[in-house]
Design a binder for these strands. Structure first.
Length: 288
DNA sequence: CTAGGATCCTGTCAGC
DNA sequence: TGCTGACAGGATCCTA
């Protein structure tokens, strides 16, 4: 799914398009996606205007002038698509970004007077919840999260939090949102390659300096993803109309098994770590 | 605390 | 062609 760079790309688009607009109605095409009392739609959502669109970890926060906020998680296959005078899409890249909507992946539709916002999610893991804006930071979803890697200084918090898991693999540790937020399977692999750390290395086997260097590599990888525009309609459809892969713009190892390492030329291999497909250069990333 | 597996879903792809 | 199993950018829950 969308990791931090993709969710932040969604956030920027929604903030630009939605702020100041009023939600006229909501169509619920999949009951389980909207995870709050549906009667609350009438009380706190319909008729409200969007005040701001924020992000925490991999979640979107749509603040409404009812003093309630929609909390959105795209999980593996969630995407947001705006259709109005302008057409815009970001999140999980697939044909729903460019085809007629609603389609079979559409779960929720927010209707505005000048357009529609589609929440599409093929696998139905994604969800939308509703909380009073001033209670958000105390919710189970947000309360225990680790620091943001690209805003504020995460170093002290990161070190303290990752040291709580001395015997876990470094890959599992950086995927843990209570240690550092925003890292998913792609950016975990990219960061570990950049830092030349084998994903199965135990946390206790790395010094503070090595962990902080890895943190810098996490920040660099996430920033590279963000700079390439996350996964948006623009980079999903190439100029010639064919389908593109935004990973090509920055990925060194993810999805590149069998290809040569950009640094040493050794063949990239795919293994399994922490239950996830994991891409490494076995020459650059040796298990000590 | 930790590893591993199952789970929530739908779709695609490789191999037979 | 059809079938089967593995796998997919997330996260939680359970067992051992």
């Amino acid at each position: 799914m969308p990791e931090l760079p993709e969710v932040e790309t969604v956030r920027r688009g929604l903030d630009r398009i939605l702020v100041g607009k009023q939600i006229l109605s909501v169509d619920v095409l999949n009951d389980k996606t909207l995870q709050f009392a549906h009667t609350d739609l009438n009380t706190f959502v319909i008729g409200a205007k969007v005040v701001a669109v924020r992000r925490r970890a991999k979640m979107l926060i749509i603040d409404l002038d009812s003093d309630y906020s929609l909390l959105v998680h795209l999980k593996m296959t969630g995407q947001m698509v705006w259709r109005g005078a302008e057409s815009w899409a970001a999140g999980h890249p697939n044909d729903s970004m460019v085809g007629d909507l609603p389609d079979r992946t559409t779960r929720i539709i927010f209707n505005f007077d000048d357009g529609q916002l589609f929440f599409n999610d093929q696998r139905k893991f994604g969800w939308i919840r509703l909380y009073p804006t001033n209670t958000l930071s105390d919710t189970p979803e947000l309360a225990k999260l680790g620091p943001e890697p690209l805003t504020s200084d995460p170093t002290i918090s990161f070190l303290r939090r990752i040291r709580r898991h001395p015997r876990t693999s470094i890959k599992a540790a950086i995927l843990n949102q209570q240690v550092i937020v925003g890292v998913g399977n792609i950016y975990a692999d990219e960061s570990l390659w950049l830092a030349k750390v084998h994903p199965q290395t135990r946390v206790e086997g790395l010094s503070d300096d090595e962990l902080l260097h890895l943190l810098e590599c996490i920040q660099k990888s996430l920033q590279a993803g963000l700079n390439s525009g996350g996964s948006t309609m623009r980079n999903y459809v190439r100029v010639d109309g064919t389908r593109g892969n935004y990973l090509d713009k920055f990925a060194h190892v993810y999805g590149r098994e069998g290809e040569p390492c950009d640094r040493c030329g050794h063949e990239i291999i795919k293994i399994k770590v922490a239950g996830r497909g994991t891409h490494i250069c076995p020459n650059c990333q040796k298990l000590r």
